Simulated assay, not measured.
Amino acid sequence: MSITIDATDGSGSFNAYVAAPSATPRAAIIVIQEIFGVNPGIRKKCDDWAAQGYLAIAPDLFWRLQPGIELDSDIPEQFQQALDWMGKFDQANGIADIEATIKAARRQLGGGKVGVVGYCLGGRLAFMTATRTDSDASVGYYGVGIDNLLGEKHAIAKPVLLHIPQADHFVTPEVQAKMHEGLDDHPKVTLFDYPGEDHGFAAEMGKRRSDEAAQLADKRTADFFAENLG
């Protein structure tokens, strides 16, 4: 199902995919899209969290550019389209929309904890969510450009988990080293490295998925949310 959420700046409203558990939710998880939009893979992430008892919501963060973008990473033309959309995307607006989604989730829960998990661009936004919102727990998979966000790390007040594939062709070893240097001693941040894995290894479908590493990362994420969201 989908819901409509009003933007906090009054500029309009956007759709969000929602997967609800069969019983009362234990908490909520905001699933932050890759550059490919709220596509079948992101919706499956939501469905899987709902099966584990969470209210899962994936907001359409590209709505200001074009509502309802869904792209396939395995189709070269669509991959290029996704890169083009990312270049036009305003990340500050994206964080505002994530914050609006967090508030909508709390309303649906009648209070309670809300975490976020993001992938690729969403992994970067998950880190920004940890520094700029009141998210209760944040997880980023192969977040891009986090090294240039380290000046915000003092604002992290709630637990953060980052998954770093060491063969990520979008995140160089030098950038990974800066992430470790800047965050390894942070009491709220945990970093996991995945030797030999590339960007997108935890995608639900398609050629990028690396099943064994994806299952390990997803178990670590599930344990992290169970500990920090209840």
Rank of each mutant, 00 (worst) to 15 (best):
G122W: 04
R124M: 10
R124H: 11
L125A: 10
L125M: 04
A126T: 00
A126L: 08
F127Y: 06
M128P: 00
T129N: 03
A130L: 15
A130H: 14
A130Y: 07
A130V: 05
A130Q: 09
T131W: 06
T131I: 15
T133L: 06
D134L: 05
D136R: 05
D136V: 11
D136I: 04
A137H: 08
A137G: 14
A137V: 05
S138Y: 08
S138I: 04
V139L: 12
V139W: 00
G140I: 00
G140E: 00
Y141L: 15
Y141C: 12
Y142I: 01
V144I: 09
L149Y: 10
L149K: 11
L149I: 03
L149H: 10
L150D: 01
L150T: 01
G151A: 07
G151W: 10
G151N: 14
E152W: 08
E152K: 09
K153W: 13
K153M: 12
H154Y: 08
H154M: 12
I156R: 04
A157S: 10
A157T: 14
K158T: 07
K158P: 12
P159F: 10
V160G: 05
L161F: 15
L162Q: 03
L162M: 07
L162F: 14
L162C: 01
H163Y: 07
H163I: 03
H163N: 11
H163S: 05
I164M: 10
P165K: 04
A167R: 13
D168C: 03
D168P: 00
F170H: 04
F170E: 06
F170P: 09
F170D: 13
F170C: 13
V171Y: 00
T172K: 01
P173F: 02
E174G: 15
V175Q: 15
V175N: 14
V175T: 15
Q176G: 13
Q176H: 12
Q176K: 14
Q176F: 14
A177K: 11
A177I: 04
A177P: 08
K178S: 07
K178F: 06
K178Y: 06
H180S: 11
E181Q: 08
E181D: 12
L183W: 11
L183S: 12
D184G: 06
K188A: 11
K188R: 13
V189L: 03
T190N: 06
T190C: 03
D193Q: 13
D193F: 15
D193P: 07
D193E: 15
P195D: 15
P195L: 13
P195H: 14
G196T: 14
G196L: 09
E197M: 08
E197F: 02
D198I: 09
H199C: 11
H199S: 07
H199Q: 09
G200S: 09
G200K: 12
F201E: 02
F201G: 02
A202M: 01
A202K: 00
A203Q: 13
A203E: 11
M205D: 10
M205N: 04
G206F: 03
K207H: 04
K207S: 07
R208C: 01
R209I: 00
R209C: 02
S210C: 12
